[in-house]
Simulated assay, not measured.
Amino acid sequence: MELGYYDGQFRDINEKVIPIDERGHQFGDGVYEFIRVYKGTPLALSQHLDRLERSAKALLIELPFSRTDLEKIIEEGIQKSTLEEADIYMQVTRGISPRNHLFPDTKAELSMTIRHPRQMPDEAYEKGISTLLLEDERWANCYIKSLNLLPNILAKQAAASKGCKEAILVKDGYITEGSSSNVFVIKDQILYTTPATKQILCGITRTNVLACAKEEGIQVREQHMTIDFIKQADEAFVTSTSIGILPIARIDEQHLSSTRPIIDKLTNAYQIFREQQVHIQS
């Protein structure tokens, strides 16, 4: 069954529990993580918790639980839900206090949901997705996985209104990332992706796909890419925790090849990596 967690207790997923003065509600003052569960095991849990800690530190939020306690809460939640496959969202906010821009003297609050996983249709992996290029209007610290996602939401919605599954964001003429994904391009057998600066969120799947590519002997270059460069790609794809590796079939009106040997190779390597990780952790 699907579960919620708030104020130290597991709850019915539909229970209304967030106080009106919760700073996540008032200001988006918090951070979050998304973890995918396979066969009852949270994939790359250590990497996700590392990033949660980095994001909280960047916003000067002291996490309300230790790493060990967070791991126990996640494990207990998976067991209580009985879900073998699940999506886990964790949010940590600065806490509950009457509305004031200055930091309150309050303890941070953890909330969590454990739900059935959202699945991208098989057809999307087989045929690839359409994407739309849009101006990146987000703030300067996208490396923080904060709750402030309104520009991402607007970009995703704009892409959907044009029949596209993802928006590819462009800043000063260069690709940054997707509205909820990292972007990869393959040209002349070389794998390219935007460097992990403050302008992008360094995805956990991004990191692990790059490791898989190097294991497979695929040359990797982290460099800034222009619009013309990505439109001339031999292959292109996006990655995230929820979708894994998802091929791109079209960028604006530019169609890419339906033959994807490098993506196929990486998809197979990532599948093996995922299975190994789940086996090791279980």
Rank of each mutant, 00 (worst) to 15 (best):
E123F: 02
T131M: 05
Y192N: 09
R118F: 14
I129P: 04
G173R: 04
T197H: 07
Y143T: 01
I190T: 15
Q157E: 14
Y143L: 05
V170W: 06
W139A: 02
I153C: 12
G203Y: 04
L169K: 02
S180A: 13
I200C: 09
L110H: 10
T205Y: 03
T176R: 00
N208G: 01
A155M: 11
A167M: 13
A160F: 05
L134Q: 14
I129N: 03
R138E: 02
A160S: 09
A158Y: 10
S181C: 05
E123R: 10
H116S: 14
A155Q: 09
T194L: 03
R138V: 02
E177F: 00
T193F: 04
Q157K: 14
L150D: 08
D172H: 13
R206L: 13
P117V: 12
G163C: 05
Q189Y: 12
K198V: 07
T197P: 05
I204P: 07
T197C: 06
I114Q: 02
H116E: 15
E166H: 08
Y192E: 10
I200F: 09
L134V: 04
N152G: 02
P195M: 08
L132Y: 13
I129K: 05
A160D: 08
K165L: 08
G178S: 00
I204T: 15
L201S: 11
D188C: 08
Y143H: 15
L134I: 08
E137R: 14
I175K: 01
K187C: 09
K156L: 08
L110S: 07
L201W: 10
G163L: 06
C164Y: 10
N182M: 03
C142S: 03
T193Y: 04
R115A: 11
A196H: 07
I168C: 10
S111M: 13
P121W: 13
T194D: 04
I200M: 08
K187H: 14
T194S: 11
L133H: 09
Y125I: 09
P151A: 01
A155F: 10
L147P: 01
H116G: 09
D172R: 12
E177H: 01
D122S: 12
M120V: 15
I144E: 05
R206M: 13
T131W: 07
G203S: 02
T193D: 02
G128A: 07
N148E: 11
Q189K: 14
A159R: 05
I168E: 09
C202S: 13
A159K: 06
I190Q: 08
T176H: 01
R138Y: 04
A160E: 11
A158C: 10
E123S: 12
T113P: 00
K127F: 08
M112C: 06
A196M: 11
